[in-house]
Every structure is written in structure tokens, then in C-alpha cells.
Computed example of a mutant assay.
Amino acid sequence: MTHLLSFTVEGLTCALPLAETRQVVGMVELQPETGKRRGGAGTMNLHGRAVPVYSLRRLLGLADRQPLPTDVLIIAHPTRECVALWADGVRGVQESPVELPPETDATSPPGMLLTEEEEIIIYDLGAFLAAEETAQHSLPGTAGTGEEAPPYDDGKGDEILAERARAFARPEEEAGGETPFSELLTFRLADREYAIKTQYIREVFIMHEITPVPGVPDFVAGICAVRGEIISVVDLRALFSIPKHGLTDLNRVIVLSDGTVTFGILADYITDIYIRPTDQFSPVEPETTPIEQRYLLGVTDESVLVLDAAAILGDPAMVVGQTRK
């Protein structure tokens, strides 16, 4: 099965392979277009890099409107360059039983698949962005039936968008990798739900085969190949002394990276992805988890433990059989 990031556009349910997404952020103030792109809505400054923003409303032939603070930008990478997709909101991560075409089907809108449940799956984002105008009749007749966006005072809304834009425009070194909002991917492990900021997640894939390695710490489950790259796979249960309840048949590997160190962590399954203000994390009571406080950012209102990926990746003990750049 394929993990899909599910989102909404004017009442339509759409999805994109999670492997093609980098992170989800709140809508920001956009810079004007310098040329003409189909569906082009402007550009955003992502830590000094201009990222083209595409309006999914325009790409799907729907009525256009001004950006709202409640809208989201899905940062994706159909090629080596990032793009941002402007959507109304994110619903979460799901496993799709639908078999996606291995390549663009010439009989359908390029890169897009409409399921029996009237969900639009953009399985080939590159082909979808490069396609001609999408015919209105090719979409399910549910557009405009979603919940209306909450009203915002124009001045206040513009203020929020401008402030977010300034935050994302700061160099990563200055911003410390932080934003006013945290984009979290949540996962299940040993009967508890955990979360990690998506900025440290390179990809998620189904675990096929892990090769054990002798002489490594107990928390290293082994190594595996990811598109020709050999990475270590860490079992957080062993690393943090979390009581084991056995692995399910839906084991996943979440690949973490800070640009210097890369390794995977095991998860039973992915549960969600959403945006949360950073200041809404509550302190973790030590008696509620065996995980040391230095590896925790806090706990959400839903009792999800937020792991500090930067602390985990930066721990010298995690560098096993590899050299930092």
C-alpha cells in the first residue's frame, strides 16, 4: 500500500504520495509572479530560496480566491526542485489500497487519478503540473460543498501571512530550523503515539528487509538500502527502554536527516500529519515515559509525545559506522 497525504480543495478530497512531500506549513504572504505558469499563484521565500507556489484551485479549474491564514502550503519535490501546493487544509495521512499507475495514463488527466470514492490522487505531480488545463467535467460534482472558511479581518489576516513569510525567509541558521508553527508527523509505536517535526523527515517507506549488523548497539536493528543508499535503522523501543509489545505487519521506516546524519527509525504505522503552534506543547511529566527529557519537545493536548529529532540526530551515540560530513 502507498502512504498518501490527504488534503482538501474547495470541498474536494485530494491526495499526494507522502514520499513526494517534504512538509506542510501555514499559508504565507506570496510574492508576485515574474512569469506565467499554469496554476501559478506566486512564490514563497523558503530560507532564502524562491519556491514556486501553485494554486490547486486554478489547476483543478475551480473558482479562485485570496489566500487565508487557515490555508496550507504543501512543500513537495516532484523533481530535485521544491514546489509549494496551495490547498485549503490537510486531513492527514492514509494508506491507500488503490494501485497507482506506474506511469502517466494517457486516457486520464496526466498524473491524476479519480477513485471510485471520488478522491483525486495526484500520483505523478510532475506530469500533473506540466499538463494542459484540467477540464471542469473531469472532477466530481462536490466542489463548493465543503465547510466555509472562517471569516478573518482583512488587516489581521494579512498581518498573519506577512509574519509567517518573514519567519520562513530567515536563513535556516538564524531561524534555527524553527518556525512559528510545527508540522508534525505522528506514528504509533508500542501502543503509544509519538510525533516528529516533518522538517527532519526525508521519507517514509514500508520495511522490506533489514540486515542485522554484529557488534553494534542493541538499539540498531540493522541496515537497509534506500535507493542505493545504505542507512542504519534504529529501534526507539530499545534506545529509550520502551516496553516492547511486538511488531505489527505494517512496520514502517521513517528516514530522519539533518543534512549531516541520516538514519531510519521503526514505527508500527503512520497515523497523521498536521500543523501545530510550537508554543502549544506542554511539559512532559517524567513518570509518564521512560524517554529522557533531552529527547522530548513536549506533549500535545492529545497526549502525543513530541520527540526532539534534532537532539536524536545530534547525539554522538547515534553515529554508527558512518562519518559526519
Rank of each mutant, 00 (worst) to 15 (best):
E173T: 15
D158V: 13
T134V: 00
G177W: 04
T134M: 04
S96K: 13
A131L: 13
T179L: 08
L85D: 08
L73K: 02
V72E: 03
T115P: 10
D71N: 13
E117F: 10
Y152G: 06
G92H: 09
I120N: 12
E103T: 02
R170G: 08
A84V: 08
E172D: 03
I121P: 07
A76W: 13
F168N: 05
E159T: 13
T107I: 09
G144W: 03
G176V: 02
I74W: 07
A84K: 03
T115G: 10
G176N: 07
G141A: 14
T145A: 01
A135V: 12
A149C: 11
E148Y: 15
P78M: 00
S108L: 08
P109T: 06
P151K: 06
I121W: 00
R91Q: 11
T107S: 03
L68C: 01
L114Y: 07
E178I: 09
S108M: 05
V93S: 13
V83D: 00
A149Y: 10
T70V: 15
L161H: 09
G146Q: 04
L73F: 03
A165L: 02
L125T: 09
A135H: 15
K156I: 13
T179R: 03
L129S: 07
P110N: 08
L100H: 09
L114V: 13
L73S: 02
P140M: 07
L85P: 11
I121C: 06
G92S: 06
P150N: 06
I75V: 09
R164S: 03
G157T: 12
E119P: 04
R166D: 14
H137E: 15
L125Q: 01
P69A: 10
G92T: 13
V83Q: 01
P140Y: 07
A127K: 07
P171R: 01
F168D: 06
A175H: 04
A106N: 11
I121F: 05
D105L: 02
S96L: 11
P140T: 06
A143P: 08
L73R: 01
Y152H: 15
T115W: 13
S182N: 06
I122F: 10
A130D: 15
S96Q: 14
E117G: 09
A143I: 03
F168S: 04
S96Y: 11
H77I: 03
A165R: 00
T134A: 00
P171D: 01
P67A: 13
A84G: 03
Q136P: 08
I74G: 10
A169E: 11
Q66Y: 09
M112Q: 04
A143T: 14
L100Q: 09
A76G: 13
G176L: 04
A130S: 11
A130T: 14
R80E: 02
T134K: 00
E174A: 10
E103A: 05
H137W: 08
G146P: 01
W86F: 12
T79A: 05
A76H: 10
I75H: 03
E159F: 11
P150V: 06
A87Q: 02
G89H: 09
P109H: 06
V83P: 02
G144M: 10
I160C: 12
P110F: 03
F168K: 01
K156R: 14
T70I: 15
L129F: 11
V93I: 14
R170L: 13
V90G: 11
E147M: 12
E95P: 00
D71G: 08
V90H: 11
A87Y: 10
E148C: 03
P109G: 01
G144H: 00
D124A: 00
A130C: 15
P78L: 01
D105C: 07
